[in-house]
Design a binder for these strands. Structure first.
Lengths: 110, 110
DNA sequence: TTATTATAACGCAATATTACGATTAAATTT
DNA sequence: AAATTTAATCGTAATATTGCGTTATAATAA
């Protein structure tokens, strides 16, 4: 029904899913990569960087803000965006942890 | 419109987004964690492990198979699932690469 | 052959996501 | 004050996702 049964899964599973969902659109990946590349606050020029309308970019920014990966501070007429270092490292660690186990299947069927 | 403008983003951006989408549901995370924990092929008992109906589990398995993260081999009446080691490491590397840059913002506004 | 078991496929309903034009809000410039 | 700039919000349309009952399908067991 498009409704995820969140309460039936572990906190870790929901956390991975939530963070993964934030990265599950190329526009949001592009936004994060752009902010990472610049290593600074971006005031304004994000819409020109993406092949999407201003309203759509704003919506993706909102989602990234909702999970806490970016922050936006109003700077006069424009808004200053940057990656939240603390959250970024938390998300990184969640993924690193997920991928830390080695895959070793001894069975012949694989 | 629910349609992602894939062609307007880089291959890397689409790759991260695609793999993230595969992890963007707690049930699929749970499936992967279960396969990782067992370190072997799982024949059958996946539905009992999850708080979802068989049809729903089957659908999540299909999605994980579609991105190549798991493989299923028919073993008599049941199907044997395991993580595709090669793909798993590829996905891991894609995420590691995404998170390899350090966040250093010198601006006062952040 | 006829159950039984295990899993995939189909189809539907509810909800979520993506995209964007239009509007609004708030600060800046003229 | 009026016009301009920038970005959020609203409303809407198209499509995707999630969940599950039901129905195949296919191998094994009785």
């Amino acid at each position: 029904m498009g409704v995820t049964k969140t309460q039936n899964f572990t906190e870790e599973q929901n956390q991975v899913a939530t963070y993964a969902k934030a990265l599950a659109h190329p526009a949001r990946v592009a936004i994060l990569q752009y902010l990472l590349k610049k290593q600074t606050c971006i005031c304004g020029d994000l819409v020109e960087e993406l092949p999407l309308a201003q309203a759509t970019v704003s919506q993706h920014l909102k989602e990234l803000k909702a999970v806490g990966l970016i922050r936006g501070t109003v700077e006069g007429t424009s808004v200053c965006y940057c990656i939240d270092k603390h959250k970024w490292e938390e998300v990184r660690d969640v993924f690193f942890n997920m991928f830390s186990s080695n895959v070793e299947c001894q069975d012949k069927c694989c």
